[in-house]
Amino acid sequence: MEYFLELSSSGLVRGSIYALIALGYTMVYGIIQLINFAHGEIYMIGAFVALIVSGVLTIYGFSGVSILILAGLIAVIYAAAYGYTLEKIAYRPLRNAPRLSPLISAIGMSLFLQNYVLLAQTPDFLRFPALIPDFEFMEPIAHIMGSPELVILVTSAVSRVGLTVLIKYTRIGKAMRATQQDMTMARLVGVNVDNVISMTFIIGSVLAAIGGVLVGSYIGQINFYIGFMAGVKAFTAAVLGGIGNIPGAVLGALVLGLTEAYAAGYISSAYEDVFAFGVLVLILILRPSGLLGKAVKQKV
C-alpha cells in the first residue's frame, strides 16, 4: 500500500508538471490549430534562465527562498519574452499558410532553440540548485511525499486556478474564448486577434517556465535537451484530454503521469514511455477526440 501511495505521489507530481506544459500546447492549439513544437524549448529556456539567475544570486550572497522567488520571476519574464518573439518570427507570417507549414516551422524553431542553448551554454548536464526549502511538517510522510513534491503540486494547482480565473472572468480571457470559437467573427466585433494570439503564447510560456523551474529544482540537473521529451509528453497529455480543451489537458496530464509512474513501478522503468503512448493510442481508438474533447461534426 505504501508503495502504491509513493507511486501515486510521484505520478501526480509528474502529471502536474506535464499539465503546466500541456496547457500551453492546448491553448495555442485551441486558437490557431498549431502544434507548437517549440513549446518544450520554452520550458527548457525557463529552466536555464532560472539556473543562471540563481547561480549569480548565490555568488552575490542571496540565499534560500529569495533566490527561488527572484529566479522564478526572471525565468517567467524571459520565457514570456521568448514565447512572444517565437510567435512573431516563426508563426505569424504563416497565419494563412497550409497546415503543414507552421508545423515544420515549429520543428525548425525547436531545433534552433535547442542548439542555441547548446552553443551559448554547454552540452553537458548542469547541476540545478535545490531551491525548494524543506518544511518540517512534511517530515512524517516525507518518504511518500516530501516538500518539493508538495510545492510542485500546490504551485501547479494554483497556476491552473489562476489560468481558469483569467480565462473565465477577465477581458482578455473573454477575447481569447471568442477568438477560439470563431476568429473572423471575433475580429469583426473588434477583438484584436493578433494581440490575443500573442497573449496566448505569453501565458502558455509563463506556465511552461514555472514547470521548468520546478522540475529543475526537483530533479537537480538540466541540459539543453530536456525540453524535447517533456514537450512530447505534454503534447501527448493534451491530445489525451482532447486538444484545445483546458480541463482536458490537466486531466490528460494527470492520467499520463500516473500511468507512467505505475508502469515504471510495477512493470519496468525502461518501458514507461511505451505505456504512456500505449494509453494514448488506446484512448484515441476508443474516443478519437480525447477524453474530454467534443466530437466535432464535420460539415460539408
Partner: peptide, 18 residues
C-alpha cells in the same frame, strides 16, 4: 553550427518559399 542553421533554414523556407 549546422543544426542551428538547419533549424533556421527550415523556418525561413516555410516563410519565404513554402
Amino acid at each position: 553550427y549546422r543544426m542551428l542553421m538547419f533549424g533556421a533554414v527550415m523556418v525561413l523556407m516555410m516563410i519565404f518559399r513554402p
